[in-house]
Amino acid sequence: MPFQCEARVSENRPLDAGVHLLGLEAPEIAASARPGQFVHIRCSGGEDFRDPLLRRPISIHDVDGAAGRVLLMVRGAGRGTRWLNALAPGSTVNLLGPLGRGFDRMGGSGAGAGREDAFRVEATRAGASRADATGAVAPLVFVAGGGIGVAPLVFLARRLVASGSRVEAFVGARDAETLLGLEAFSSLDMLVHIATDDGSMGYHGNVVELMEKTLATPGRWPARLYACGPRAMLGRIRRSAALGGISCQVSLEERMGCGVGACLGCACRGKEGPLRVCADGPVFWMEELSW
């Protein structure tokens, strides 16, 4: 059940490249949000409430349940998001949330067993998991984000680590300046792979390419892949996941109206007809989509 609330801005920290980290006091949302869900934010107030008119959907970057805070990573791309990034701590903003279908951290997509030899010819099969000292199996999970697409993956990684998964992050950006989420992933004590288009930090090239190289390493086959980023990146993720038979979920971005599934403004192409990004997603199994 989603909530509507006036949330106080507790923090507004500019990161690089026009991206801000916003802390909002919204205890009900912080307590009930699941990774991959979003909040729908009114980006106007007072007498100017008619313009900009529509709310902006922003994925939940992280939550601090104890403090009742929701963290958002907002790229100032247009009027609405720039308005958000200009909010002073102490001011309030109207939120709906948590909305949408988040990442499915358990269950199966029916993608079946991995076909590791698609990427690796000689290596011995190391499996998607390894046993720890007690014999329990800790599944290996990859999260891959491009640009601002990293935003929802931090909350996801935190929950995955907490539930005992081994998580590795693949973070891509145009250059070192625009890389996001490194600090947060590192604080979760997980392996972070970095790729930049210009080679100014980490691997010189595409983040999916880097991930594919890792898949070719023995013992590094994930049980699940989660991705968020530009459509071109997700297209390539789709090919890798399909080739390797890796169960994969992606989070999509689309212009939204209502955010609750009523207006059909944010449709994407599904295998069996249009899907609503706001209500059927924003997280989809790769097999549900048709693109």
Binding site: E254, G265, C268
Partner: peptide
């Protein structure tokens, strides 16, 4: 099935929609 996306764009104090009777 309705129209291809984008189906919605914000304009000054308004929105343009082309959902296409999905």
């Amino acid at each position: 099935q309705g129209n291809p996306s984008p189906r919605l764009v914000e304009t000054p104090s308004g929105i343009l929609n082309a959902v296409g009777l999905q």
